[in-house]
Simulated scan of single mutants.
Amino acid sequence: MKKEYFKEFKNSSFWDDSDYAIKEYVSTPPTDDLIASVEQDLGYKLPASYIEMMKLHNGGIPLNTCFPTNEPTSWAEDHIAITGIMGIGREKAYSICGQLGSLFMIDEWGYPDFGVVICDCPSAGHDVVMLDYRKCGRNGEPEVIHVDQECDYEVTFLAKDFETFIRGLVNEKVYDTSEKDKETALEKVARGEFSPLLAKLCAHATEVENLEDKIREICTKIVEKKGFFALHADELSILMYDLQFWLYTKFQPSIDRERYLKDYEMILVFSGEFSTGGYAPSFITDWLNDRVGKGMIIETSETIRFTETAKEQLLNRLNETNNGEKLYNIAYLLVE
């Protein structure tokens, strides 16, 4: 008697048929000849549950994209995430024999050749979900595993078979920690210890009263707007770039661009409790190029510094209020 898969499973409510999903993942239902041809290319017999599902909806992006794990991976402490499920075919880039399919991930990315890649992940190639045939042989019922290139292709067991994996997917909202993360970030910017360099720079700057408090006020506003502590290209981040630059070049007047960009990391990026914990170098270089282009920063082969006008505007902005409200003026430091 033929085994029946996905009893009481609502296939129509499983998929997120966005324009992107249909373009990149979804193919027409596979014929028996296509399935046999794909299996020959892969060297493995595909699970009957997978084939049955693909005959109803051949690849795509599910509404639920997370799967719980009992151990941490490079993605999260307690789950992995997938971007989409590869269909049976060759036409779509994200089908198992497509341009970015299983054979590509094994041949080009070095994933272990003991199964079939069936799901790509948000890391853009740095982890995948595979069917694992090591226990069952090439014609058996494979387990489903997560393979993590970031951790030397570490394998994490997910499910005993494909159907169990599909039924175990949960919505990303289950792991939404944004509110908790925001509370943690607010606590950090309110009370976290400054890096040794930032503390030294603040102590050296006597032109602004309660400077450390004002820095915390600005960064609190950043967290309130974003939900986390990071500097990008928004107005408050630009204010912090300006402030850090003024503090550092006041303390170290004889520095060039290269030295500043190197030491920038130690002000509030990677040192001390009060830190962003990381940054994209392009944001700080884009800010610096913009300030030089607007004539606010003077750069020579040996030094780099604010003009007196730009410095005065910054100090006026910092000193014009005690509670910091005007620090968030979007028109900050515009030079006519």
Results as ranks from 00 to 15, higher is better:
F306V: 05
E193Q: 14
R167E: 05
G192D: 11
P142F: 06
T28R: 11
M53S: 01
I35M: 10
C121P: 06
I238R: 15
V174H: 10
S13C: 00
R305L: 06
K188A: 02
S123E: 12
E4A: 06
Y248F: 12
D256G: 06
T69G: 12
F283Q: 13
T285E: 07
K2V: 07
K2N: 11
T220L: 07
H57R: 15
G98R: 12
F251T: 10
D213P: 02
H126I: 00
V174R: 15
L186S: 08
D32N: 13
M53C: 01
K7S: 12
D16Q: 14
I267A: 06
A159E: 05
T300K: 08
I238D: 14
E273L: 02
Y94K: 03
S27E: 14
Y153S: 00
I255R: 00
V128A: 13
K226Q: 12
K135F: 02
F165Y: 13
M130R: 12
K182T: 13
K92A: 06
F228P: 07
G168F: 02
D242G: 08
T321K: 12
Y94T: 07
I267L: 11
N171S: 01
I298M: 02
L318N: 09
R90C: 08
S271F: 08
R90I: 06
R138K: 14
R259D: 04
Y5I: 04
T220A: 11
Y133C: 09
Y50Q: 01
D33S: 14
E212W: 05
R134M: 07
W287S: 05
G125P: 07
G277R: 11
A233F: 03
C151S: 12
L42C: 00
K326V: 08
R257L: 08
H146V: 00
F165N: 09
K225P: 05
G324Q: 13
Y44F: 00
N210W: 07
L197S: 02
G43R: 02
E4P: 08
H57M: 11
K311V: 01
M53F: 01
G272H: 04
T73D: 04
V26K: 15
R257C: 10
Q40F: 05
I267H: 05
S102V: 09
T164C: 11
V335E: 15
E325N: 10
S178I: 10
E163W: 03
S275R: 15
S37Y: 03
T303W: 09
E39V: 01
P196V: 00
A331C: 09
R259G: 01
C136N: 04
F104C: 06
M86L: 02
V292H: 14
L333N: 15
D127P: 06
G192I: 03
L63R: 15
I118S: 13
K92Q: 05
S282D: 11
Q313T: 01
F229G: 12
L315Q: 15
T73P: 00
A190T: 09
E299Y: 08
E302L: 09
L158P: 06
L318A: 07
T156D: 01
Y111G: 05
P72A: 05
T285G: 02
S178H: 05
I166M: 15
F228D: 15
D290K: 14
D181Y: 11
D148V: 02
I222D: 14
